[in-house]
Design a protein around this nucleic acid. Structure first.
Lengths: 177, 177
DNA sequence: AAATTACGTCAATAGTACTGACATAATTCC
DNA sequence: GGAATTATGTCAGTACTATTGACGTAATTT
């Protein structure tokens, strides 16, 4: 079964390192961190028969109530067809409602219901707890450092999406805090 | 189509905020950051007909050459069946080779070939570039702050996985393996 | 010799995503 | 007013990653 007979290349026994100045340390940390970060809500979602896609939709509808389907697609960077099933389920289970657009009646504004709001909070709670613990554990008083780093990781053209968010977050919108 | 006729809850029009002290700012940044972070290698992988799963396997085999299938499953936290197809493809395309375990001949040690090493580097390069740019853009001289934060985001029981990594990264491991 | 372990494989299924095509209603353009 | 465009919904077909459960084989341990 272990073929390797003829054409196979020889095994390289040395670990990949910082050749070419590649930052494997943070690459790997990012992977582990995101994996565990998403595992928190995944457990709750399983009880509802929902997946990560439902979470993302629910999150953004709660963050930006009244956004349209097109805007949601743009934020999530997925296709209409991918959103369709997930959104339908959230509407059928009364987590999200559609309201006809006031100016443009073709548009459907998406709003959370009380039920949808509650679920969004329940999902975010363990994640927020993890973040708070991480900020404490890592002894970081400068939360801004992390925020700025993460924001800088996002494609520049897409950073606008982040700023369209309510308030007092990235320190870019001049609201109170 | 916009039903809302009877039982549907009423739309909530206010954005979710920092109710309950929930840290939506970082939650959202983490989502966007990871999304764009993975989009870099995704483009390259598409040329090979590979997906993210292939990337992860390739990454860890390069990081810890000689790890066994069981160890790999443990790091990735997926099932044997999920790994099977992906690993088979990487072996068939001569990116990874299996070597019979020296002590225990049931084990298959996994090693990258020159081809597999090259691909791993090619995939990591844009990610590392993005990280470097983010560190610069965010004006963070203290790279350690970010590293500590990300590590603290990982489940404590699972932090061991990170430390088993080659060297000079987290400064926690004593000697090679 | 029996039990356990490491690995591989098969079958069946699910969740999330994709592309492309088409339909409908509403708005905008000429 | 009629034509083009836009916003949304839906259908068909496909792909990738993942799941659980079962079974087989070879090697090691008890």
């Amino acid at each position: 079964m272990i073929d390797k007979s003829q054409s196979a290349g020889k095994p390289i026994k040395t670990a990949i390192s910082d050749e070419d100045g590649i930052d494997f340390a943070i690459i790997e940390l990012f992977f582990f961190a995101y994996r565990d970060f998403t595992s928190d809500p995944d457990q709750i979602l399983a009880d509802y028969g929902f997946g990560r896609a439902h979470h993302r939709v629910l999150h953004f509808v709660n963050r930006r109530p009244g956004l349209t389907v097109a805007e949601l697609l743009d934020v999530l960077k997925i296709t209409k067809q991918s959103l369709a099933r997930v959104l339908k389920q959230l509407i059928d289970t009364d987590h999200i409602v559609q309201v006809q657009g006031p100016r443009d009646r073709r548009q459907r504004e998406l709003y959370p219901t009380a039920k949808g709001r509650a679920l969004a909070l329940a999902l975010a709670r363990p994640q927020s707890r993890r973040i708070r613990a991480a900020l404490e554990d890592s002894g970081t008083t400068e939360r801004v450092t992390i925020e700025r780093f993460l924001e800088a990781m996002v494609n520049p053209e897409l950073r606008a999406q982040i700023d369209i968010v309510p308030a007092q977050t990235s320190g870019k919108n001049h609201g109170d805090h």
